[in-house]
């Protein structure tokens, strides 16, 4: 039978993973379903499990110099309840799963799961969040877009843990967040969309646009965003061109939740609406 380990603290956890390859379980809301065998049966974990949900070091939320550091084992509910978290971010977290699942599921888990449908990811991409990775001797910080390498894949090795997420506290003047799903609670997204614009003297100063569930990873392009900023400042913004840029990045599929066609059209429509409403 497979072992499970409950480390006493972060140091203990980081040491445990040096020699043993563990499946790291924080909230477990995805893992417990993935490994489920049925009523009365042990979930089928093929490697030992490391429980990290109760590590205090991973449950801290701090703000320093305009950056939030959120412990990887913070549940979405704890983020929603925390006064340091901006309302915009909370709006995204509030649409994840159901209240009970938000009480269990963690932000670190959502990131490490690296699903293109991960509900927190478009926001984190749009904010240029970075992922703090630790092993027993070092601590590194990696942009989320580099950390996630494919659907369900990321660069974390078995001797490392994601310990925190660092994200800037930013103010935007216009924000659109849309989770498109078959029902209003407890649903996986068909498409998710985050778009934010910041104005200065009615001139576009910054824009962030990210799409979820429509490609192997979250779709975001700083190049296109910069082109939008640049062209809108000199009045030469060509919306059709912007849309066609994103069209090359959005590669949705048909699945049990929706169709590629629908997903593509919705992305386009959301984008057109955003550009039309706020930028021109």
């Amino acid at each position: 039978m497979v072992a499970a380990y409950r480390p006493k603290n972060l140091k203990d956890a980081l040491e445990a993973i040096i020699y043993t390859e563990y499946i790291v379980l924080a909230g477990g809301t995805d893992l417990m379903v993935k490994k489920k065998q049925g009523a009365g049966l042990l979930p089928a974990f093929d490697k030992p499990v490391l429980f990290i949900a109760d590590l205090e070091e991973l449950k801290q939320i701090n703000e320093k110099e305009g950056y939030l550091t959120i412990g990887a084992a913070c549940s979405f509910s704890s983020l929603i309840d925390n006064p340091l978290i901006p309302a915009l971010y909370k709006q995204v977290f509030l649409q994840i799963a159901s209240p009970a699942v938000r009480n269990i599921a963690t932000i670190g888990g959502n990131i490490c799961n690296s699903s293109p449908a991960g509900d927190s990811l478009p926001l984190l991409y749009a904010l240029d969040a970075s992922i703090i990775i630790e092993n027993s001797c070092r601590r590194i910080e990696i942009p989320i877009a580099d950390f996630i390498t494919g659907p369900g894949r990321n660069m974390l090795t078995s001797s490392e843990l994601v310990t925190a997420i660092k994200l800037p506290v930013l103010h935007f003047d216009y924000v659109v967040y849309k989770k498109v799903s078959a029902r209003k609670s407890t649903a996986l997204s068909k498409v998710s969309f985050v778009a934010m614009a910041k104005l200065k003297d009615s001139r576009l100063e910054d824009v962030r646009i990210a799409f979820g569930s429509v490609a192997p990873t979250i779709v975001r392009s700083r190049d296109v965003e910069e082109a939008i900023i640049y062209n809108s400042s000199n009045g030469s913004l060509d919306k059709t061109e912007i849309i066609s840029y994103y069209t090359t990045l959005i590669k949705p599929i048909d699945d049990q939740r929706s169709t590629a066609f629908y997903r593509r059209q919705v992305c386009k429509r959301l984008l057109v609406d955003f550009l039309g409403n706020w930028l021109c």
Binding site: V33, A182, R183, K184, S185, Q256
Partner: peptide, 11 residues
């Protein structure tokens, strides 16, 4: 039960 969707209280 994840993919077959029935209404919730919010719908």
């Amino acid at each position: 039960s994840t993919d077959y969707i029935i209404p919730t209280a919010k719908d």
